[in-house]
Simulated scan of single mutants.
Amino acid sequence: MQTASTNNCERMGHSQELSEFKRGTVIGFHLCNKSIREISLLLNIPRSTVSGFITKWKQLGTTETQPRSGRPRKMTEWGQRRMKCAVRSSCQLSAKSIAEELQTLHGLQISTTTVRKELHGMGFHGRAAASKPYITKCNAKRRMQWCKAPHH
């Protein structure tokens, strides 16, 4: 049995989801009159998670995960791989040309803004050179003279 000083972050990450077996085990221990603290220590999961599962089980009568709200992603993993290949083959492509390429070659209907968002998520960022001031011939001559002159 583990001690109560174990850090919750070490035990279970924020994005992990418990298996159906572990969720059933939590309910089984609850039905055997084990406390939330005891269940937490035995299964090595946070007390808040145990409490949440028991509450959901009492309200819904099931331990299955409920569907999450939110819009599904437009790009699949396959589409992301295609886009990454297109960008790596030619780094100078615009988002519009990448979107057109994905539409013609792979049949993906995707907008340029979605392409930009996905590329940013992958770590690709468009960078433009800084604008340089217009240098006249007179200014160029002065600069050259300044460079040649001894500096104090």
Rank of each mutant, 00 (worst) to 15 (best):
N8W: 02
N8Q: 05
C9P: 00
R11F: 01
R11Y: 00
M12V: 10
G13Y: 01
H14D: 04
H30E: 07
S35K: 09
S35H: 03
I36A: 08
R37T: 09
L42M: 10
P46E: 02
P46G: 08
V50R: 07
T55A: 14
T55S: 15
K56T: 09
K58Y: 13
G61V: 03
E64R: 15
Q66D: 02
P67A: 08
R68T: 10
S69M: 13
G70P: 03
P72I: 04
T76A: 05
T76L: 08
M83S: 02
M83A: 12
V87K: 14
R88C: 07
S89T: 15
S90C: 15
C91W: 11
Q92F: 09
Q92W: 03
A95C: 15
A95M: 12
A99V: 00
A99S: 14
L105M: 11
H106E: 14
L108P: 02
L108F: 15
T112E: 11
T112Q: 12
R116W: 03
M122T: 06
M122F: 08
H125I: 13
G126Q: 11
R127T: 09
A128F: 01
A129S: 11
A130V: 10
A130D: 08
S131D: 04
K132S: 13
K137Q: 15
N139E: 14
K141D: 06
R142W: 06
